[in-house]
Design a protein around this nucleic acid. Structure first.
Length: 232
DNA sequence: GCGACAG
DNA sequence: ATCTTGTCGC
């Protein structure tokens, strides 16, 4: 698929934040009463890092939303494009993830990202960034919270509590499995928070994390191992 | 000044 | 994220 590749890459924090502020207005958040999306192909994206914190491998895995079976997968190796700074995390892995997306022969109907969407200091986390670059619906499903406060959701699968930051609801702490730590769901692009929640639950029928993320996590680690075996 | 801080 | 074995519990 085609991706609107960023032309200028930030060299420091100020430039990176400026890019986020410039792209932020392009994010489209659907209202919760909007017609729910019915994606047929859902893509999971993840990145594995080498211990030297520089080389990395990205994986994009496309699943059939109905059966959760793998339709296609792509892996790419690269190098960290930015130091890790909370809030600027996307700049680390964006180039390698975009390369992987461009090698996809099918176009997914939804991107499920391993990180935040609008639950971000400038309301522009990785899921928003990838959503805007591809103009595809996207959601963020993070294992940890980045901003805001929330109550602990009830222990049952499906229970959730809003994540509020600076007076606005930016995401949900969602229990995908009874008695298991919640995940943090937020809108990336062209979806509602209600739909993002519903999709996350559907994609996580048996484990805490969505099957999309689990597949991408495993494949990115395998690709990294293979790449490290052949030092560049 | 102190603590928090996606992956 | 990554470094890492066994171990407690359902």
């Amino acid at each position: 698929m085609r991706v609107a590749v960023p032309h200028r890459w930030p060299v420091d924090r100020a430039e990176a934040e400026a890019i986020q502020d410039r792209l932020r207005p392009r994010v489209r958040v659907e209202p919760d009463d909007a017609p729910p999306p019915r994606p047929r192909l859902v893509a999971g994206l993840d990145v594995a890092y080498a211990k030297d914190d520089e080389r990395l491998a990205a994986a994009v895995v496309v699943l059939d939303a109905a059966t959760l079976e793998v339709v296609e997968s792509v892996t790419t190796v690269g190098r960290a494009a930015f130091p890790y700074v909370p809030g600027l995390f996307a700049f680390r892995e964006l180039p390698t993830l975009v390369t992987a997306l461009e090698r996809l022969t099918v176009t997914p109907d939804l991107l499920v990202c391993d990180g935040q969407g609008v639950a971000h200091p400038r309301r522009f986390g990785l899921a928003c960034h990838l959503g805007v670059l591809t103009d595809l619906p996207s959601i963020g499903v993070a294992k940890q919270s980045l901003v805001g406060d929330h109550a602990d959701p009830a222990p049952q699968r499906g229970a959730w509590s809003p994540v509020r930051d600076a007076g606005e609801v930016v995401g949900r702490a969602l229990r995908t499995q009874t008695g298991v730590k919640p995940v943090y769901v937020s809108v990336g692009h062209r979806v509602s928070l209600a739909a993002a929640t519903d999709l996350t639950l559907r994609l996580a029928p048996a484990y805490r994390l969505p099957e999309t993320t689990r597949h991408a996590d495993r494949l990115s680690r395998e690709a990294l191992r293979a790449a490290l075996g052949t030092p560049a």
